[in-house]
Write a protein that binds this DNA or RNA. Structure first.
Length: 519
RNA sequence: GGCGGCGUAGCUCAGCUGGAAAGAGCACACGGCUCAUACCCGUGGAGUCCGGGGUUCGAAUCCCCGCGCCGCUACCA
């Protein structure tokens, strides 16, 4: 039983929450819930990144203050997390006073240490957009990629972080901690990148109104990464509440999308080395969801709105699909057909129906009371054997964030239970008058379902709660601990089960399109 | 261009450091069951394991060449 600190990125509030945000956050939530199930003290951090000229501009267009805009967007994120049953411990905003203070403290420390120095930043500046671009980003080598107008080469004062100093220490760290960056193919990319040499990075901007003031030079504001990344330690009170900070730091897992991996795997550890605190245990970069093989994007108008899906099908279906369909780390394809297929065959047909058919028999033949188990035979042992190996399997897969494989191991049990029911055929036993054996069989299946429910809770919390209630369990599901829960025989006999009602109703592809047409 | 990865049943993919008759899920076909959310259970399929060469007693698994895909190659979160 230890502590477990997991984070999502702080999401940039220039965009409404989309499937990608939901994906990262669902994964983090599932991992958090799983660690709680193991008995760990979990700190699960998410939040929003609210500074920058993009936000300022968007706010101006709407004629509201940037803070107001950020407030609105943050509310949307929180609302989505509520709908998705996201059990975060803290929601950090980069506009929080605490965060601002910590960023400034960190900046000052870096400055004192000599890891930040004043230099000249030069780039291609678009006056109307008030933003700098790299030569590689320009359209036809001189036009702004956003507004297509001509840019000018501009040089201005800026403070730099000596990232280059950390090339060697970073390479050593990757070497000594092979699981620091995962999946391994991403790690290769990062290592290769660092090997080619690192340039110092500009960490302040002049004339950036909507940003954290630089503590050593009032004309400057702190630019993106030193602001955003520090959320991971500001939320814990770094430099403010040391005791609390050291309770949870270092982070065990930083979950990120593959697009921001390098910031987390290179700049972030370098910053931490510079201020002299421990490095996180793991940075895991997951993949993207594609539509018909294409990346989702607003311009392609193929964005999947997580809220539509949740409102129509419930949060569990989305959680289940995203974590089950594709190995975490790889890109996946999202389509109504795939979604419907996955959810129907696994949740409705295999799992939901297992509960349903079992409860029906108990209600019909045992007055809805959990029967008393009798003698155990070889078939029963085989069934129980499937539970014995489950915790270890889960542990192995969850340690590697292999959600899909974790599901595989759970579904082996689900299938095993359906098979056991068919083999034992209690509906035939009742005709033969073998009620005692029938009772045993049903008890065993109910017991399997009880354990499955506990194990599934981190993944599909709402459905698991419903299953728990139908079983008639009175303990609190969220307080169950895996170690105890998997012990055989914890289901009290004579417990009154509920009349079954489909927990995971089947859905149709048409339902999906109706939703999309409406909007 | 450089570095890395991938190419296995109709589809999505497991097959790690070489060795039993090449696997899973889905789809499909046939059969069983009837407790159940038209569910569940069983059986089946002629797969050049991208192509070619090599190492080996033996390769999907190692080496070389070729073909076809894909990722990374920094300051946009």
């Amino acid at each position: 039983m230890g502590k477990f600190f997991i984070t999502t990125p702080v999401y940039y509030v220039n965009d409404v929450p989309h499937l990608g945000h939901a994906y990262t956050t669902i994964a983090a939530d599932t991992l958090s819930r799983y660690r709680r199930l193991l008995g760990d003290e979990v700190f699960f951090l998410t939040g929003t990144d609210e500074h920058g000229s993009k936000i300022l501009q968007a706010a101006r267009q709407k004629n509201i203050s940037p803070q107001k805009l950020a407030d609105e967007m943050t509310a949307r994120f929180k609302n989505l997390w509520e709908k998705l049953s996201i059990s975060y411990s803290d929601f950090i905003r980069t506009t929080d006073q605490k965060h601002i203070k910590v960023v400034q403290n960190v900046f000052s420390r870096l400055h004192e240490k000599g890891d930040i120095y004043k230099g000249k930043y030069s780039g291609w500046y678009c006056v109307p957009c008030e933003s700098f671009w790299l030569e590689s980003q320009l359209k036809d080598k001189k036009f702004c990629p956003e507004c297509k107008r001509e840019t000018v080469k501009l040089e201005e004062d800026s403070y730099f972080f000596s990232l280059s100093k950390y090339q060697k220490p970073l390479l050593d760290y990757y070497n000594e901690n092979p699981d620091f960056v995962l999946p391994s193919t991403r790690k290769n990319e990062v290592v290769e990148f660092v090997k080619r040499g690192l340039r110092d990075i500009s960490v302040t901007r002049l004339n950036l109104e909507w940003g954290i003031p630089c503590p050593v030079d009032e004309q400057h504001s702190i630019y993106v990464w030193v602001d955003a990344l520090i959320n991971y330690i500001s939320a814990l009170g770094y430099s403010l509440e040391e005791e609390r900070f050291f309770t949870f730091w270092p982070a065990d897992v930083h979950l990120v999308g593959k697009d921001i991996l390098k910031f987390h795997a290179i700049i972030w550890p370098a910053l931490l080395m510079a201020i002299g605190i421990k490095l996180p245990g793991m940075v895991f970069a997951h993949g993207w969801w594609m539509i018909k093989g294409e990346k989702m994007s607003k311009s392609r108008k193929n964005v999947v709105e997580p809220e539509w899906i949740i409102d129509r099908f419930g949060s569990d279906y989305l959680r289940y699909f995203l974590l089950r369909e594709v190995p975490f780390g790889e890109d996946g394809n999202f389509s109504p057909a795939l979604f419907v297929k996955r959810v129907n065959s696994d949740l409705a047909n295999d799992l939901g129906n297992l509960l349903n058919r079992t409860l029906t028999l108990v209600v019909k033949h045992f007055q809805a009371k959990v029967p008393r188990p009798g003698k155990i035979n070889a078939q029963d042992d085989e069934l129980k054997g499937k539970i014995d190996s489950l915790p270890d399997n889960l542990q192995n897969f969850m340690d590697r964030l292999s959600f899909s494989q974790a599901f595989d191991s759970i579904w082996e049990v689900v299938r095993g239970a359906n098979l056991y029911l068919d083999r034992c055929a209690p509906w035939r036993l009742v005709k033969k008058g073998e009620t005692e054996r029938m009772g045993s069989v049903l008890y065993n299946v109910l017991e399997i379902i009880r354990i499955l429910t506990v194990v599934l809770f981190p993944f599909i919390p709402r459905g698991a709660e419903k299953m728990w209630k139908q079983l008639g369990m009175e303990d609190i599901l969220s307080e169950q601990k895996l170690k105890d829960a998997v012990k055989w025989g914890k289901l009290p006999f004579a417990l009154e089960v509920k009349k079954p009602e489909p927990v995971f109703p089947r859905i149709k592809e048409e339902d999906f399109y109706e939703v999309e047409r409406e909007t």
